[in-house]
């Protein structure tokens, strides 16, 4: 009798210690679902969703404050990926947030008119513009996410969005002209 009580208490103590150790050792910092959502977002930090960046939007989705269809740069692909992750129905993009653009764009500063005012540098959410007061401002094309936030910021209207020229690194096969028809059992027999 005494032996049984002793064994059970020792076991309970052991498991208690184990649980206590595990809760400290494997402590989760922050909400892991926020990280997962954040990874699916395009990291343009453009603010078109109404939140000041991708991470705040991810937090809003996780807490249920925002819908999953407010990311125009991500487009339908991102909505679909978020729907898969969260186990909800995908919805069409919220037109209020803006139109997705098909071609990847990059901001270009036309140097002959740049007055070195730094307003575009302050507008850039990803620090993709090199420049200082009364010095030439230049976009680092690799860092530019194409969010267009610098375009309205420029007082002399010298920033334009240009399509990214194809290079051996970013060129892809063009899509076929004909729409893609998945092969089903019926169509496979016809062929």
């Amino acid at each position: 009798m005494l032996m049984a009580i002793l064994i059970v208490s020792v076991l309970a103590g052991l498991f208690g210690l184990l649980l206590g150790f595990a809760s400290i050792r494997f402590k989760v910092e922050g909400d892991p679902i926020v990280d997962q959502i954040d990874q699916l977002l395009p990291q343009t930090q453009c603010g078109q969703c109404g939140f000041p960046g991708c991470r705040p939007y991810a937090e809003a989705i996780a807490s249920g404050e925002a819908d999953i269809n407010r990311c125009p740069p991500g487009g339908e692909t991102t909505v679909q990926a978020l729907a898969d992750l969260l186990g909800v129905e995908p919805k069409p993009l919220d037109a209020e947030a803006g139109e997705p653009s098909d071609i990847p764009m990059v901001a270009v500063i036309h140097e002959e008119y740049c007055i070195g005012c730094t307003l575009c540098i302050q507008a850039c959410p990803v620090d993709a513009i090199v420049g200082a007061p009364k010095q030439m401002h230049t976009v680092i094309a690799d860092e530019c996410t194409g969010c267009k936030l610098c375009v309205p910021a420029c007082p002399v209207d010298t920033i334009t969005m240009e399509p990214i020229p194809p290079t051996p690194e970013n060129w892809t096969w063009p899509f076929p002209d004909k729409p893609y028809i998945p092969i089903t059992v019926e169509t496979a027999h016809e062929q």
Binding site: G116, Q135, M136
Partner: peptide, 16 residues
Amino acid sequence: DRVEIYRPLICDPKEV
């Protein structure tokens, strides 16, 4: 830090 080397402006802001 990001150390940046700048280039001078082409236009004269006052003239513009």
